[in-house]
């Protein structure tokens, strides 16, 4: 049995935000936006999501052929290089308070070349599910909950920790 009090996210008073641009973002735009956002103080955690980009053709007569999608590229965020495995369609993030929320909104208005929707709500799980427990066990880091594809294998979806030395800046 999972003891929920042990596995809750570090602080439930944090705000959760979602940024949904009206177009899918090019890797350069996504990189510029992420770099501006991670520089802000008070970003707890964030992830990008969007349609996946496979390395090889997954099915059909061309199964196994390499794809070489131009959006499947390496981007550098906060000094770390990471592989962008999705065409960025949105960003979900957890921030410390309403001030940071307004700063994120300003960054989006400045960087995004297209109109966007900016919502506050509940987008990242704060309590681990039975599946999370089965995958990560009882001693899992609560900040990692909901940060990977729930249907994927953990080894295929690494979580990139940008500033692991200071809590609250993952």
């Amino acid at each position: 049995m999972v003891n929920s009090s042990d596995t809750n996210s570090s602080d439930t008073s944090f705000l959760q935000l979602e940024v949904s641009p009206s177009r899918l973002l090019k890797p350069e735009t996504a990189q510029a936006l992420l770099n501006e956002i991670v520089e802000l103080e008070g970003i707890i955690r964030l992830f990008v999501h969007g349609p996946g980009l496979p390395q090889t053709v997954p099915y059909g007569p061309a199964k196994g052929e390499p794809v070489h999608h131009p959006a499947n590229t390496l981007i550098e965020v906060g000094g770390q290089t990471m592989e962008l495995a999705v065409y960025v369609g949105g960003i979900r993030l957890e921030v410390a308070d309403a001030d940071v929320k307004e700063q994120v909104r300003e960054v989006c208005e400045r960087v995004l070349p297209v109109p966007f929707e900016f919502r506050e709500g509940h987008f990242i799980p704060t309590r681990q599910t039975v599946t999370d427990y089965a995958k990560r066990g009882p001693g899992a880091d609560p900040v990692m909950i909901g940060m990977t594809d729930p249907k994927g294998k953990l080894k295929d979806h690494p979580v990139c920790i940008l500033k692991s030395e200071s809590k609250g800046n993952d």
Binding site: P21, S22, R23, L24, L25, K26, T29, P51, G52, L53, P54, V57, P58, Y59, G60, P61, A62, V67, H69, A71, Y87, G89, P113, V114
Partner: peptide, 20 residues
């Protein structure tokens, strides 16, 4: 094969998303 894209937002360049 792999037709995914018709219901997705268009990418910035306006060409319908095609994962292949």
């Amino acid at each position: 094969a792999t037709v995914h894209g018709h219901s997705l937002r268009l990418p910035e360049d306006g060409v319908m998303f095609d994962m292949l």
